[in-house]
Design a protein around this nucleic acid. Structure first.
Lengths: 146, 146
DNA sequence: CTATGTGCTAGACCGTGCTCTAGGTCAACA
DNA sequence: TGTTGACCTAGAGCACGGTCTAGCACATAG
């Protein structure tokens, strides 16, 4: 059972990953790939299935706020092959922590926003009904100014 | 029961909000405050308690990814006083949706990261125990290259 | 009176991550 | 053979949100 060697042009990879060809070139230049990209006889980039998968991961990493520099480091480690799994793990764990923190932070902000929304819903209900507006009590953003 | 008119210098506000004085000046210039800031006889900014509270909200808005332009719009509405609660509500609801979407996106990325972490934990455990490395099956980021 | 601290403005600069342009190469097809 | 379309490189440009600098004004303390 040989693996079929499917290759992709940069345009095809762009289609598949949702990244622009510009971005793909940038990512290569920045060393985000796990190894040197092959080129065809005309000097055009040749992506493997692996690369596409890896880039798919990269988009997730990016979407979760991982900086390009960190992805580069991870790519280096993966490119080096077995033996550095502990370091990859460390890196991923640190990132996971940041993402979890970020979620918690957003959740916290969301609570405040929810409060505001609730307050305004009440205000609009009042306003629509009888143009009344109670005394603001939850600080700026709820009532008027001064 | 009169409200005590407590005023703050830009430095005091910086202390209280965690924003730098540079940023505070930027925010004023960008119209993020709900009204014109008072100045003292020497032309120095005079912040009220209200402003500090509002800026506190702003930091939450920023932390949740609200662009300065949106905060400016909200500040305008609040500055205009009563009557536009519906529009404020609309704006806040839209932002809430974005935050919720963002949380969901992060959560999704987190799942992938968790999988990777789990895989590497296993790998490291194996590696530490007997230097073994099973066949990678979850795509790039798990095994070696090509 | 002068030194220190805090504030002021205008505007330059910065990091991050794209995004686009100019000018060129190459393969494939009519 | 010529035209089209995808690709190439180098490098500029951009949006965003700060962050910092230069040069100056003012108030208060010693």
């Amino acid at each position: 059972m040989l693996d079929t060697p499917v290759d992709f042009s940069i345009g095809q990879v762009a289609e598949r990953t949702g990244l622009s060809v510009h971005t793909l070139r940038l990512y290569e230049r920045e060393g985000l790939l796990t190894g040197r990209l092959r080129r065809d006889s005309a000097g055009r980039r040749v992506y493997t299935e692996w690369d596409v998968q890896w880039l798919h991961n990269c988009t997730k990493f990016r979407a979760s706020g991982m900086p390009l520099a960190t992805i580069r480091r991870l790519a280096e480690l993966v490119g080096e092959g077995r033996g550095n799994e502990a370091e990859r793990l460390e890196l991923l764990r640190a990132h996971r922590q940041r993402v979890q923190d970020r979620i918690a932070e957003l959740q916290d902000c969301l609570d405040l926003i929810d409060n505001k929304v609730t307050a305004y819903e009440a205000a609009v209900r009042q306003g629509t009904a009888d143009r009344l507006w109670g005394t603001p009590s939850t600080g700026p953003g709820t009532g008027g100014r001064r």
